[in-house]
Amino acid sequence: MLFELANEDLGYDGDAVLHGISIGISKGERVALVGESGAGKSTLLSVLQDRYGGNTALIPQQAGLVRSLSVFHNVYMGSLHRHGAAYNLLNLAWPQKAEVARVRPIVERLGLGDKLFVPTGELSGGQQQRTAIARAILQGGDAVLGDEPVSAADNHQSRVILAALSETFTTVVLAMHDVDLALEFSTRIVGIKDGGIALDAPAAELTRSGLDFLYRK
């Protein structure tokens, strides 16, 4: 098991949002978390990140970028742990060829090739989101945890992004609002409702209408 929670109450500052959560995610799974906004998907993701952050990349909901830094720098942040402080600072001031060469193909694949040295504060919401994804891809690792990573992308882009993520990471856990996309992309769907896990099944066994109950009052 890569991630495992057994009958736990999850929430911020002792204020539990989710109750009695038991879930195990093993290597190689592609999990989509679905449910109404505010159901607790983000809570679950952040708990997993806290517990198992060691070799896991994170794509936060608001992209989590440094707006005054360029796309290159924001993506490069995914590799800060691989280098010493001096080399990192060197790249902050003067991006090194080797690092640009590492970052560029990832960024190009996500359609940001012409924005490499543009401050992320000047980008659209979707472009910022893809910058955060590029950062996670450069970071790599066993797994990626993504909080609505394709919320601002169109259908085509979403597929490019999801393909890129599943190529890089053997295990993918994403909160998603687009149910069709979730069914298409993931191997397993976890539905959250009323402070608990209301559904946990292989994607192949589910249909779109079978998920509707998650969004009903």
Partner: peptide
Amino acid sequence: MNRLKHLVFG
């Protein structure tokens, strides 16, 4: 980025 270059430099 340029601004940071000046910071490190300065």
